[in-house]
Design a protein around this nucleic acid. Structure first.
Length: 423
RNA sequence: GGAGGCGUGCGAGAGCGGCCGAAUCGGCACGAUUGGAAAUCGUGUGUGGGGCAACCCACCGUGGGUUCAAAUCCCACCGCCUCCGCCA
């Protein structure tokens, strides 16, 4: 375990500390239980003695019990203190990376598994963007009147985008497209966007990453950074039947991220924003089902990009770059010709039982027996701002208009061309 | 936001401060009965932790308190229901 966590940079002493706290906690609990059992036994005797009319003996026993009770409370308080320290240490410990996740310390060590581009099946080579596509989306968007970052900033500050006209409709169209693609197997959910601290803790977003999230202090609610948060808690505290698994659902929500200290060169236009819409695919599964569910989510996310005719690549995240809760993650990055960069639009992760343990989601095996922790998996399918950016840049024509892919026609009233506003 | 009621096991639903981890009915599982089924009868039927066997401990919305002893009394919070107010 130390070796496994070491792959992602956790110091061995941190693991030792957990073991020490655990041993101490167990010892105190055992001590407490013995005292507790004595108090209970004595209390019973007090009742009997009193009923038998032996008032003196009852008083004696009560006195003895009181003394043990005080002792028990002291030991118990100590046990609680250790338990809390253990809980905090454990909550901040990241998940064990999967054996299959590549070694590495950071993003530079991620492994590119494959690339896709339109026409690849028929042998075409990766397309070289034309000059008219080499215009960043914030310029294209502004000229066409479909993206207004300045007015968005006026309303909410920088990095809160405002889409207008056909730009706004494009976001809606993308959401509809994804919904239609995924609801064959995934139950559509519209969860709350503000959630309890407990809900944020279940996914591993709290306590460690509280600074990344918006917190409504007055009501102690958190704005979700992803629909993964409410979906993971959908069945919190429940024991599912194995036959219900895999339990798959999808949700489209706004996602909020403070991105503290992120302002700068990498944040222009839609590259990084505080609020965005994202379609999430989520599943509870058994350990045996997890790999195929993981593959399904990845295939669905890729399928959307392929429908949209956008070149992308698939990254296998190395142990050092995995999110804290994840055991294995594939990132999908779409190519942005206007920025000449690969932009992350989906992260497809397998959390094993790390989140289910926090959320206390279990299932009863088919043959009966003790409940087992479920596995959770999720992936974006997809996050729209960067897809929007890639679509607008990739589809830009020599005349400055933007031509969108055919799959969106049903959602755009059949009009796939966005032209500059007249006048 | 105001007033009142309620929160117990898979469901319904009892529960006097000690004999309640919890009656009873239903559901479910197994067994008996049957040619098979229904009906009937019997047995079993929560979760977590410790020893990992007998057994012990915790959990009756959550958290505190009173008590020798709390599902049972007190306080706070949360949730649900009803009525009122407000609003889309």
């Amino acid at each position: 375990m130390k070796a496994s966590l070491g792959r992602r940079g956790v110091a061995p002493e941190d693991v030792d500390r957990v073991a020490e706290l655990d041993v101490e906690h167990r010892k105190r609990l055992a001590d407490r239980e013995v005292l507790r059992a004595q108090v209970k036994a004595l209390s019973r005797q007090v009742g009997q003695a009193r009923k038998a009319g032996e008032g003196g003996r009852a008083a004696e026993l009560a006195e003895e019990s009181r003394r043990l009770g005080d002792e028990e409370r002291a030991v118990g308080a100590e046990a609680d203190r250790v338990a809390e320290a253990l809980r905090q240490t454990l909550l901040e410990l990241p998940n064990l990376p999967s054996e299959d996740a590549p070694d590495g310390a950071g993003p530079e060590d991620n492994v590119e598994l494959r690339r896709w581009w339109p026409g690849m099946e028929t042998g075409a080579s990766q397309p070289e963007p034309a000059d008219h596509q080499r215009v960043p989306h914030w310029e294209v968007g502004e000229r066409l009147g479909i993206l207004d970052m300045a007015r968005g900033a006026r309303l909410a500050g920088s990095m809160f985008p405002l889409y207008a006209g056909r730009g706004a409709r494009l976001v809606r169209a993308l959401t509809s497209l994804a919904r239609d693609r995924h609801t064959d197997a995934y139950l559509e959910i519209r969860p709350p966007t503000l959630v309890l601290t407990e809900t944020m803790t279940s996914t591993g977003h709290l306590p460690k990453f509280g600074d990344d999230a918006y917190h409504v202090e007055r009501d102690d609610l958190w704005a979700i950074p992803t629909a993964e948060v409410p979906l993971t808690s959908l069945r919190r505290g429940e024991i599912l039947a194995e036959e219900e698994l895999p339990l798959r659902c999808t949700a489209v929500t706004s996602c909020f991220r403070r991105e503290a200290g992120a302002a700068g060169r990498d944040t222009r236009g839609l590259l990084r924003v505080h609020e965005f819409e994202k379609v999430e695919l989520f599943a509870y599964a058994t350990e045996a089902q997890a790999p195929s569910v993981h593959a399904d989510i990845l295939a669905r996310a890729e399928g959307v990009l392929q429908d949209l005719r956008l070149p992308y690549r698939v990254l296998d995240l190395c142990a050092g770059d995995l999110g804290a809760s994840s055991a294995r993650t594939f990132d999908l990055e779409v190519y942005s010709p206007g920025c000449d960069r690969w932009l992350e639009v989906s992260s497809v992760s397998w959390f094993r039982d790390y989140q289910a343990r926090r959320a206390n989601v279990r299932y009863r095996p088919d043959g009966g027996g003790a409940p087992l922790l479920a596995h959770t998996l999720n992936g974006s399918g997809l996050a729209w701002p960067r897809v929007w950016a890639a679509l607008v840049e990739t589809g830009r024509q020599p005349d400055g208009s933007v031509l969108l892919p055919d799959c969106l026609a049903p959602y755009l009233g059949g009009d796939l061309r966005i032209t500059p506003p007249v006048g």
